[in-house]
Design a protein around this nucleic acid. Structure first.
Lengths: 194, 194
DNA sequence: ACTCTACAGTTGACATTGTCATCTGCGGTG
DNA sequence: CACCGCAGATGACAATGTCAACTGTAGAGT
């Protein structure tokens, strides 16, 4: 026998997973509360016992992916390799989310509207991890400046790749090359400043 | 007396303008075909005489802004100043669209779904203009590599600023500083390679 | 052991919206 | 002047987010 709160928690979990699954599979318009309910084994209205509205449910989906990314980035420093490699790995990790889960990626960077705190706090966590990785490469004094530059650039690369605006035909380059250039330039700037 | 085709063209214009206006003012969910029609002085179904569906109408809205950007970028080279200033101005021009018309900006970089050609062609035009501006700074050999880097980075800056993920609190920097750093690094790389 | 309450989940209903089939009116052509 | 084709209007429909009302039961209080 499951307690009431356990059952409710399980339902909530199932709802979030269902929403994430539908988003991944069919994009935003595939995420209907009716289908989310069906996939979670409950009915359409059940979500309103756990979330204020559809937006809030999606906010949780985004926040959980941010948390996943934070933990992924945290693991980067544990594995061996040079600081440069860590930064490269971290940036490519973000880009990989864009490639493998484009709809989820878009959701992560959509303007927070539901409960801003939930998403923003989780995103901030991942950004802190990234900041630590960059510190390793350029030192803590320059970490924020370079961190912002590297992160925004990687996000731009992911975004343009995702929207088809980074065509190899026109630009003669790939996301990987761009990341390499960025990391090399950052490492170079550090050395040249002492 | 207006001819039939003139009147139809005027209606089409009004529909596109109405959609753009509603998008600017109230975001995507404010763009309903009923309101678009009302704003354009026609009824809800009129749009289907000019566009396959809502998506196609929005594709035209995005394409027109890309064309506007292309023409804006074209003007950059005519005004005086150093190549560095031109690149900086061009990047900030993109970022300014993100700031002043966030919903339209998002639409420009959304995955093309309606008639891909319309939007992609217009975007390509703007990118060509940008390429020309970058050539001025780094030479035509490196233009594509640096162009892709600068454009994706600027897009990332715009996107993160727009989604609230580029908080000054955390990163201690601004979009303008990031652009300056990028441009300086590009100009520097060119010199150091000869 | 019995009762009662709070709450998870269901169901009916409704307004909104995109879309299409059908209808209407008129400019242009013979 | 008759006719046709198209721009636009309108009725209808299915899908969807949301909420009010309802139901059943786990768990607390006695």
């Amino acid at each position: 026998m499951v307690s009431r709160s356990e059952s409710a928690a399980a339902t909530r979990r199932a709802l979030v997973d269902a929403a994430a699954g539908l988003l991944d599979a069919g994009g935003p318009e595939a995420v209907t509360l009716r289908d989310v309910g069906a996939r979670a084994g409950v009915s359409r209205g059940a979500a309103y016992r756990h979330f204020a509205d559809k937006e809030s449910l999606l906010t949780v989906v985004a926040a959980e992916k941010w948390e996943w990314l934070a933990s992924d980035l945290h693991g980067v420093r544990d594995r061996g390799g040079a600081p440069e490699d860590h930064v490269r790995t971290a940036l490519l990790s973000l880009i990989r989310v864009g490639r493998t889960q484009p709809h989820l990626y878009r959701l992560m960077f959509s303007t927070p509207r539901g409960d801003p705190d939930t998403a923003v706090r989780a995103a901030s966590l991942a950004q802190d991890e990234f900041l630590a990785i960059v510190s390793e490469l350029v030192g803590s004094d320059d970490a924020r400046r370079f961190g912002a530059l590297l992160l925004t650039s990687a996000h731009g690369i992911a975004g343009m790749e995702l929207s088809g605006h980074l065509s190899a035909d026109k630009w003669h380059t790939t996301a990987e090359e761009l990341v390499d250039t960025l990391v090399a330039a950052s490492a170079g700037s550090r050395r040249s400043r002492g």
